[in-house]
Amino acid sequence: MGRLILRQFQGADLEPVDLTIEAGECVTLTGSSGSGKTRLLRAIADLDPHGGAALVDRQAVDQTPPPEWRRRVGLLPAESHWWQDRVGDHFNGSANELLTELGLNAACLEWQVARLSSGERQRLALARLLDRQPAVLLLDEPTANLDPENSARVEALVQDYAQQHGAAVLWVSHDPRQRRRVGQRHLVIRERRIETASA
């Protein structure tokens, strides 16, 4: 289970924000580029300094060792980076099921990272993250490089994962139709403030 609670949370030069995302709930976030969406996600994942409080269920960020916090609060950045040559060396367990749902298969674990297309990288980065079973998902434009078919696969996989694991999801997307499809609530950043929006 993972309920994300932000109390007077301050990151990315934004005004302090109070936000609770229930376990299994998906909240979308949008805003013009440079408004601080990416930096807000980085601050929640504790990759950048921040003020206020962030909790997953009852556990506060400053009382959790950083690696444990980041394992629970999984951030999927817009651009993925890989530190080994072989795709499979970035995975912990057997990720077969995840890969199948993303339209890939176990053979791609043997592929060289350098030869991946941008769409493959993006889907494999999601699989790599879900493989570690985070309690909260922070997704930064997870379908930006994908065709409609693969976008649908990613949306379905994330929704399944959120239901099965009771994971709170914060989803950054520029596509209004996608926001309506995946989110139960919608937020927008306007002039350094995070406001509730209609999809």
Binding site: A45, L47, P67, R70, R71, P77, E79, H81
Partner: peptide
């Protein structure tokens, strides 16, 4: 990017 990718994954 590579360092932070590893931090993000715990």
């Amino acid at each position: 990017g590579m360092i932070e990718a590893q931090l993000m994954l715990g």
